[in-house]
Structures are given as structure tokens and as C-alpha cells.
Amino acid sequence: MGLQERRLIQQHTNTLLPQVQADLQQYCGGDIDVVVEWEGFENDAAALERLSSQCFDRLLKAVEWVCQDDLGKAALREKVHRVVVRNVPTAAERTLLLSDGILTVAGVWSSVHWDGLYHQTEYHKFLESRL
């Protein structure tokens, strides 16, 4: 891992993740932990640079849609206690999974093609179908 990647991970740990957690708290009224598996980003500065826009911005928009009313807020708080984000090398490994209170989001965050990413409507449909 190079200096650029270490700096981006530190920046995300200090600023991005606390902001994402605060946004989740605001939208659903409960605490949801956010964990990034940094080892998948160690040699991928492009994924680190795009993590906010390619992953979190879209996921947060979908959560905001789900939590538009008290029913959605309660359902999300009941089913999602942690969000785990992974960077995977290929679109074939991209996954969304909700199990035991953990929402796992794996994508090719450095991708410039949709096949490795999720649109906020995909997150929204996924969440609504599992809450």
C-alpha cells in the first residue's frame, strides 16, 4: 500500500465514515455501524477516491427513500445494524446481502461502468424487499 492509499484511508476513517454514520442516524433515527474492509482497497487509489460517490452517496439516498416515514425508519432500524463495504476486483463478485443485521455491499468502486456498481434504485429495491 502506497502513501496515497494510506492518506485516503485515514481521511475516510476520520471524516467520511463519521459523516455516513451521522447521515444514517438522521435518516433512520438509530445507530448503524459502518465498516469498510480496507484491505480490499490497499492497492486501489481509484476505488478510495470514488468510494463516497460510487458507494455511500447512492446507498444513503436509498436509505433516505426507505426512511421517508416512521414505518420505513422502524423497519430499517430493526433489520440493519451494520453496513460492511468491500471492494472487489470484478463485477462478477459484486454483491448485496442482508443477513443477521449486517448489510454487506461489495462493488468495484473504481469502476467507470455500471456493471461493477449499484444505482440508488437498486439499493432501494433491495432494502425494501428485505425489510
Rank of each mutant, 00 (worst) to 15 (best):
G29R: 03
S53Y: 10
A46S: 09
Q19V: 10
L16K: 05
E42K: 10
N43A: 09
G30S: 06
Q11E: 07
Y27V: 03
L48K: 02
V36K: 02
Q10L: 12
Q25H: 13
C28N: 03
Q26P: 14
I32C: 05
V36C: 03
Q26G: 08
E49N: 14
V34N: 03
E49D: 14
C28Q: 00
L17V: 06
T13V: 07
G40R: 10
L24E: 02
E37D: 05
E37W: 12
L16S: 01
Q25A: 07
D23C: 09
V20Y: 12
I32T: 08
A47M: 04
Q19E: 12
Q10F: 15
G40P: 09
Q10P: 10
W38G: 00
L24P: 06
A45H: 12
Q21K: 07
Q10Y: 15
V34P: 12
G30P: 13
G30K: 04
L51Q: 02
G30M: 08
C28H: 03
V34Y: 01
G30Y: 14
Q21M: 09
F41C: 00
E37N: 02
Q26D: 07
N43L: 09
E39D: 14
R50V: 08
I32A: 00
L24F: 09
H12R: 03
I32F: 06
L51D: 04
Y27H: 02
V36F: 11
A46T: 13
S52Y: 14
D31A: 11
E39Q: 12
E39M: 13
